[in-house]
Amino acid sequence: FTAVLLAVRFYALCRLVSEIPEVCKTEDCCLGIDEAGRGPVLGPMVYGICFCPLSKKEELKDMKVADSKTLTEAERENLFEKLVEAKSYVGWALQILSPNTISTCMLRRTKYNLNALSHDTAIDLVQYALDSGVQLKEIYVDTVGPADKYEVKLSQRFPGIQVTVRPKADSLFPVVSAASICAKVARDRVVKGWNFAEDLGEVDTDYGSGYPNDPKTKAWLLKYLDPVFGYPQFVRFSWSTAQTLMDSKAVNVHWDDDEEDGEKAAQRQNNKSMLSYFSVSSGGNNQNATHQAHRFFTERRLKSLNTL
């Protein structure tokens, strides 16, 4: 399992799966969904599903699975091993969203926020279970966003399946607890074994919890701030913690969709934008005022120079 996890960092989107227990294809099943690593500024976010026949609910409960946050790392590892051992009736699947995926999605021109990303990932995983032949009858989901809307969305998407979206579902439903343990264990292992794609030599792995308020995480973010590139892809650039540090300590970078910036630039450099076609006489560019270049040049953003 660790070997598989070590390979994941190279893929933007990675799925790890158990074998599908045969009994899950013949008996009605319940499925729990939970996530790990939503808050940290470092590392991936992991989505987990866990499923078993409705008839095995008690056995899952007897395993003493609980909300992963109430358990120590050792307890989680231990419980995960138990879940793996129960492979005759427990199945699971994990979707790992790399920090780079999170950054580039959240910072996209047309924003793709974390909730949407989470929902889509959960839906993908449920669909995977269905496609694998799991006889799903009940779905239990832990959520941080508004539960009602999410419940409606999932119910519509998966008609005929009873969907329960609940805050703290991971402490209420054993199958969600099991999913949370799988997700958390995976997230911890990926973070611990993170292999930087950047060529940074030995990297200090003492990043703490990865939560923005952890002093170790803060110190790490200060230490590994590059003035031009900001951070390695291990860091979620879309987190305000990272943004704030880059704003104060890295060089400024401007994109054409930085709203305020872009508008001003368009006004100032009106000979470079579509605006130039309408406001030939405005602006202080002399060349522009006397001569409108042929569209061969304007279309190609080519202009004469008068000095280097």
Binding site: E198, D199, L200, D226, P227, V228, F229, P232, V251, N252, V253, H254, W255, D256
Partner: peptide, 14 residues
């Protein structure tokens, strides 16, 4: 994008 910098950068590494 416009990068407000003229000078060295760890282009290969990052």
């Amino acid at each position: 994008c416009e990068i407000e910098h003229n000078g060295p950068a760890q282009v290969n590494q990052y």
